[in-house]
Amino acid sequence: MRALLIDLLVAFGATGILVLDGLHRVHTPPFWVPAVAVAFVVLLLRRRYPLITAFIGYGLAWFVPTVLLLPTVLLYTVASRRGPKWPTAVAVAGCLALLATFAGSGGTPNWRALGVSAVSFLVIPVLAGLWMYQRAALLEALRGRADQAERERDLLAERAVAAERRRIAREMHDVVAHRVSIVALQAGALSVRAPDEETGQLAEVIRESSAAALNELRDILQVLRDDAPDPSSRPGPALSGVARLTGDLAAAGARIVTDLPEPLPRVTDQVGRAAYRIVQESLTNAAKHAPGATIHVRLGLEDGRLVTEVANPLGASAGLPVSGYGLIGMRERVTLAGGALNHGPDGAGRYVVRASFPAEGGTP
């Protein structure tokens, strides 16, 4: 669009000069009006067909010398579009022949006039056109180098990320998986040799939880190593797993009061997965900060939104390590699912984690 506007301005400007020149002449050359019209069309098409339009302009200047400005513009266009190649040499030769014809038309050649005309109508436009061609080529080369540098930077970043993911996968496998495997083996041995039934049940719950953790850890390691398909293509935790989650923790000896609707609200997979993880992390935090206290878990619909709430009394810590990343991870999950998260003391001696998510439209 910008090039078309420039071509229109050049065409109107050049033909306007020709029109004014013709109006100031007492006798205009034959075919002057058609020549000006053809010159206008030639100037509009000069970028697409530079060499052809140049020779058409030479022909017009041959028959109508008042349009001598036209070959200069067309010669510049050929040089700027084709560069130091044969089309430019052909256009220069044609323009030089035209100038020589005009210089010798009066009998004895006027070499001084020919030299001035050659510099004005041939050398200057050719040099200007070649400079523009080289400038455009340089800009294109610099643009290509910038694009290549950006692609190389992205490739190096991807390689660095892949290397870091593999390193994390190795560390998780060597440290976390090893520790959890030991817990599972010891819990299995304890469930077999338990002195009483209650101890055996608790040990079995620990073994099953450890085995489930190993399975989830294996999936995470596969994702980190890029050996597994897209995580969203595999079944993951859902809203229906909250009941089992609280049941396993209750079987391990925790005191949990649940308020789960029946049937469960209908939500998207992303929302269900986020709600499950919020409850899971909240239960973990409650076990850390209020061991032995009663934990209240509630799910429900409020104003068309799914609400999850986990509350526990403020109490002494269990002495487990605390990093603070749990709350950060919960907020990220809730935000990605389009929800809102609030946590903190409620003024009644309880710590409450409350999250709300968009629901699909009630219960099925």
Rank of each mutant, 00 (worst) to 15 (best):
R207K: 13
T335C: 01
P87Q: 09
A3W: 03
G326Y: 02
R273A: 14
L138H: 08
L23F: 10
V307K: 12
R166N: 11
G200A: 15
V64A: 07
S233H: 09
G236F: 04
R112V: 11
R159V: 06
S232R: 15
V78W: 02
F63R: 12
Q201W: 09
F40L: 13
R273H: 12
R170Y: 07
G241P: 00
L74Y: 03
G324H: 05
A316W: 02
R273K: 10
Y49H: 14
A187K: 09
S232I: 06
D174G: 02
A14I: 12
P109W: 12
I206F: 06
E262H: 13
V126G: 09
G115S: 13
Y58S: 01
Y351M: 13
T335D: 14
L127N: 03
L260K: 10
L43G: 04
E140K: 12
L98C: 02
L127C: 10
V322F: 04
V41M: 11
V116D: 09
E150P: 00
Y49E: 05
E197D: 04
P358K: 10
R234G: 01
A290N: 08
M330H: 03
D21Q: 14
R354H: 06
P237G: 10
A316D: 10
S209K: 09
V183E: 04
L68R: 14
R81F: 00
K288M: 13
R266K: 13
R166E: 12
N312D: 15
A228K: 09
V180K: 09
E204A: 15
L70V: 12
G347Y: 03
S233N: 04
P313W: 07
D269E: 12
R218H: 10
W32Y: 15
L306Q: 10
G16I: 10
G83H: 08
R354S: 07
R193P: 00
L122A: 13
P237L: 13
V161G: 01
R170K: 11
R305W: 02
A113C: 01
Q186S: 08
P265I: 06
A113S: 12
L70G: 02
D154E: 13
P109V: 15
L69T: 11
I256F: 06
A97W: 09
R167P: 00
A228D: 05
R159K: 14
A136F: 01
